[in-house]
């Protein structure tokens, strides 16, 4: 029953390869056009070196390769400082790799763009705009007329449950609501890939659980390629179709797992049941052990 395939690029990973049923791709939504749907986001042997004034340069990433196809939900886990945010910035096009390259649908990524939506840890909304205007901001930038903008945004505002808050100011919303506006904003531009850097880190446990289910539903419906960073092992296991574990100094991917806990959730719609399955717990302990090892090495005791 356990659909766990471990591929290891480091000696200490045990090969937990159990025969894996190729998880059926979620049903394709009849998406007409999007900002490049159906395109694969790839990082090919990317290295990022931050120059440091004194001492050795920081190798934030060392020859990291990863491909994210439409319908993939890739979650990155790892000790603090292992280069997760750096990797996301690379995919988003905010920084360019020292070596290697990033491509989307075969074309090199030369900067940020509407084909890769980003959800930030701190919502990064524009406080001078109302909720609706924030959500339609991307469409406005792309020159879509106002009436149409509104119609396109409504769907996602409903989806994240903010229907009654369209005309509210950002600073009148709670943290969880602001985060949902950030998600709706990224979705409304209909990007091929969605990049999220600890988007739920600041939320309480209950809101966080709800948001996880929300993100899964959105993903299933839109069939996007998602790259998601988190510090919560449970969250990572629950959401991911592909889980990558990264280690610091130099930043690299040490373990990759194919998972299907999210599909089990779609079957039973009971998150707590999925999270208390024996193989879920087993995986959780295994990954915590790996990350704890990295954190201890770095002199960082708490996990």
């Amino acid at each position: 029953m356990a659909q766990v395939k471990g591929r290891s690029t480091s000696k200490k990973a045990k090969s937990a390869s159990i025969k894996s049923r190729k998880t059926a791709a979620p049903p394709k939504g009849g998406k007409a056009k999007s900002n490049g749907s159906g395109e694969e986001l790839r990082a090919e042997a990317v290295t990022v070196v931050y120059p440091v004034k004194e001492g050795d340069d920081v190798h934030a990433l060392e020859k990291v390769s990863l491909s994210i196809s439409p319908g993939d939900f890739v979650v990155a886990l790892g000790a603090s400082g292992c280069g997760k945010t750096t990797f996301l910035n690379l995919l988003a096009g905010f920084i360019k790799p020292t070596e290697g390259r990033v491509t989307l649908g075969g074309r090199p990524v030369l900067g940020p763009g509407a084909d890769r939506g980003v959800v930030f840890q701190k919502h990064a909304l524009l406080p001078w705009l109302k909720v609706l205007q924030n959500v339609t901001f991307g469409l406005k930038m792309q020159g879509i007329p106002q009436g149409k903008r509104r119609d396109m945004a409504r769907k996602y505002i409903d989806l994240v449950g903010l229907k009654d808050f369209e005309q509210k100011n950002i600073y009148e919303l709670s943290g969880g609501m602001q985060q949902r506006v950030g998600l709706a904003r990224a979705l409304t531009s209909d990007p091929a890939a969605l990049l999220m850097d600890e988007p739920l880190g600041a939320l309480d446990a209950l809101t966080r659980d709800n948001m996880q289910e929300l993100i899964l539903d959105v993903w299933r419906e839109t069939h996007k390629a998602i790259f998601f960073i988190t510090h919560s092992v449970e969250e990572a296991l629950f959401l991911a179709t592909k889980l990558i574990v990264m280690s610091p100094r130099p930043g690299r991917i040490t373990h990759e797992y194919e998972l299907d806990f999210c599909h089990r959730f779609f079957e039973c719609r009971d998150a707590r049941k999925v999270k208390s399955m024996p193989d879920f717990i087993k995986m959780r302990e295994e990954i915590i052990t790996i990350i704890r090892g990295d954190e201890l090495e770095g002199g960082n005791i708490h996990v």
Binding site: A92, A114, R116, V118, L126, F137, G138, M141, Q142, S189
Partner: peptide
């Protein structure tokens, strides 16, 4: 905020 705007096209 600036990054977000660029990522929205």
């Amino acid at each position: 905020q600036i990054h977000a705007a660029y990522s929205l096209g």
